[in-house]
Design a protein around this nucleic acid. Structure first.
Lengths: 321, 321
DNA sequence: GTGAAAGCGCTAACAT
DNA sequence: ATGTTAGCGCTTTCAC
C-alpha cells in the first residue's frame, strides 16, 4: 500500500500538502490540489488510519460489550449502535462478556490498549472501579452500571406495572410472575412493578431468563396452581417458555392462560401465538446511546445522565380474548 | 496513560530493554527484568497497541461482514468467531452489510485503512474484484464468494435432499418447497436438493427468507393446493412462517401438515411446535473459519480451500407423526 | 546484557 | 500557499 510520501513524490509536493488536501484544512492552491488528487487516484492511496490514530490519540473505534450476542435482545441493540456509528465514521468492536467479570476486565484492558474512543456497555456484573478507571467516555445501555455514567433505558418498573395491569384488564383473576434472574436490576424492577399492581396476591417463581428452565418452572407452577390464568414473564424468551409449558399441559392460550412478555424483540411476533409484550424502543435507544457517546468523545457535554425512553404495550394473540 | 518511556525512566533503563521485557524476546538480566516489571506495575503501564500496530503493520483485529446481525442465524456465527478470536488475542469488528454492495465496499475500505489483519465474510453480493484487491487474508463463511477464497459451509444441496426425503419418509404425499431468495447460492442449492428427490412432482414458491412474506405466500399456496401435506422451508425463519400460515388456516402440524426448516438456529427449538430442521454446526463452522483465518494471517498454508461440514437432521414435533 | 537511534505513516507547528 | 521537521509510542537493528 502506498503512503503519503509516495503521493507527495508522485505529485511533486511535500507530505504536508498532501495531508492538507486529505484533511481539507489549511490553504492549498487549486492546481496543486488537483495534482495531489490525481496522484492519490493513480496510486490508489488510502490513508493509514493507524498512523493517524497514533498521532491523534483517537481510533475512530468504539467497543460494545454485551452479555451474549446470541440472546435475541442484543443483536437488535448492537445493530442500532453499529448503524449509527458507521454512518459517523466509527467502527464497532463487539465483545461478548457472558456476564463474567473476568472477561469484562479483559475486554476493558484490550479496548484501552487499542485506544477505542469510547465504550457502550450492557452489564450488571461489571466492576465499577475498572469502569471508573477507564479514562474515555462510557455509556450504559439497557441497564445502569454507575450513577455517573449516562444510561439509556426504559422504566422497567413501570413496564412491569403496565404488563400486570394489562392481564388484570383483560379479566385475569390470578396472575403469576416468572421472574428474571435475581440481582439483575431490570428483572428486579419488573418484579417490583408486578408487586405494585398485584398486592398480596402474588405468585412468583424464578426463570433465569432461560427458556427451558422457565418452561420447566412454569409446568410445576401451573400444576400446583391450576387457578393461574395469567402470566407476566420477565422477558420475551421466558414468555415463550411459558407458552411451551402451556402447550405441554394442553392449556389454551390466551383463553385459559394469558401470557405477556417483555422487551418486544422481533421474535415476539414470529411465534404462534404471537406474544403480547412490553415493547422497548430498542433501535432508538441504541442509536441514541451511540449518538451521546460520540458527543462525549467530541468533548461536548450532554444534557442528562438518565435517558429514559417510552415503552409501549403491544397486545397480540397471547392476551387477546 | 504512561508510555514505555515513562517505564524506562522509572526503572532506570532504556526503552529497548523495556520492550524486551514486554515482548519476552532478546536477553535481559533477571535483576533488570524485575526492575522493569516493578516499574510497569507501579505506573500501571499498558502498551499502546496502536503504536505497535504502526510498526508491525498488524492490528490484531479482524473484521466480520454479515448481512444483518438481527437475522438469528448470524449471531450464532458471529459468536463463534468472536469467541475464538478473543481467546487468540484478536478483536472483532462487526459489519452489517444488508447485502448491499456499496456498504460492503465501504466496509472493505475502512477495514483496509484500519489495517485489519483479515476478514471473515458472509455475502453473496460482494464485489469479487474488491475482494481480490484486498491484500490480506479472507475467508468465506456459510457461502462461497470466490473460488480462491477458503470457504466454510455445509453441502446445502445434500441438506435439501435430506430434508425432502425426510418428509417423504414420514409419509407425506405432496411436498412443497418454500424457496429462499433467488440468486443466493445456498437457497438455490437447497432448492436443487428438493428437486433431486421430488422429481416432477414439485410445487415451489418463493419466500425471500422473510417470515411474513413466507406466511402470506404459504397461505395462498395451501389454499390452492389443499393436498399439500409436507413443506420444506428454505430456512428456519421461513419454516416459522409456514407454521403461522398453518395456524391461521387451522391446519394441524404435524398431522395434517409436516414442516421442516433449515439451519438449526436456536430459535427452532423455542417455538411450539418445535421445528424439525437440517442443523448446521454453526458454532464449529465459525470457529474453524476463525482458526483458518488466523493461520493464514500467520503466514501458514492451510490444507484446503473447501471446508465442508456435516449437517444433521433433527426431528422435532413439526414432523413427528 | 543493554542502549542509541532509525523508522513505521501521519499531523501540525513553525518557517519561508 | 507550501515545505521542513518534530513527534505520536513502539520495535528492532546495530553498536558496545
Amino acid at each position: 500500500m502506498s503512503t503519503i510520501k509516495d503521493v507527495a513524490q508522485e505529485a511533486g509536493v511535500s507530505v504536508a500538502t498532501v495531508s492538507r488536501v486529505i484533511n481539507q484544512n489549511g490553504y492549498v492552491n487549486e492546481d496543486t490540489r488537483k495534482k495531489v488528487e490525481n496522484a492519490i487516484i493513480k496510486l490508489n492511496y488510502q490513508p493509514n488510519s493507524i498512523a493517524r490514530s497514533l498521532y491523534k490519540k483517537e481510533s475512530k473505534t468504539i467497543g460494545i460489550i454485551v452479555p451474549d450476542i446470541t440472546n435475541p435482545f442484543f443483536p437488535e441493540l448492537v445493530r442500532g449502535v453499529e448503524d449509527y456509528l458507521i454512518r459517523n465514521g466509527f467502527t464497532t468492536i463487539l465483545c461478548n462478556s457472558d456476564e463474567d467479570a473476568d472477561k469484562e476486565r479483559l475486554y476493558l484492558e484490550v479496548m484501552k490498549q487499542k485506544y477505542v474512543d469510547g465504550l457502550i456497555i450492557v452489564s450488571n456484573t461489571i466492576n465499577e472501579q475498572l469502569v471508573q478507571q477507564f479514562d474515555r467516555p462510557i455509556v450504559a445501555l439497557d441497564r445502569s452500571i454507575h450513577k455517573n455514567i449516562p444510561t439509556f433505558a426504559i422504566d422497567n418498573r413501570e413496564g412491569g406495572r403496565r404488563a400486570t395491569q394489562h392481564l388484570l384488564d383483560i379479566g385475569c383473576q390470578k396472575v403469576a410472575h416468572i421472574k428474571g434472574p435475581d440481582q439483575i436490576e431490570n428483572s428486579e424492577a419488573r418484579y417490583k412493578g408486578y408487586l405494585d399492581v398485584i398486592n398480596n396476591n402474588e405468585l412468583v417463581v424464578s426463570g433465569h431468563y432461560d427458556l427451558k428452565k422457565t418452561a420447566q418452572a412454569t409446568i410445576e407452577l401451573l400444576q400446583h396452581h391450576p387457578e393461574i390464568d395469567g402470566v407476566f414473564a420477565g422477558n420475551d424468551i421466558m414468555a415463550l417458555g411459558v407458552a411451551k409449558a402451556a402447550d405441554y399441559l394442553n392449556i389454551k392460550v390466551p383463553n385459559e392462560l394469558a401470557i405477556i412478555g417483555f422487551d418486544g424483540i422481533n421474535l415476539s411476533e414470529m411465534t404462534s401465538p404471537e406474544l403480547s409484550t412490553i415493547s422497548q424502543p430498542i433501535y432508538e435507544m441504541s442509536t441514541e446511546a451511540a449518538r451521546a457517546l460520540i458527543s462525549l468523545i467530541e468533548g461536548k457535554v450532554i444534557e442528562k445522565i438518565d435517558y429514559e425512553f417510552p415503552f409501549t404495550l403491544i397486545q397480540r394473540q397471547s392476551t387477546k380474548r
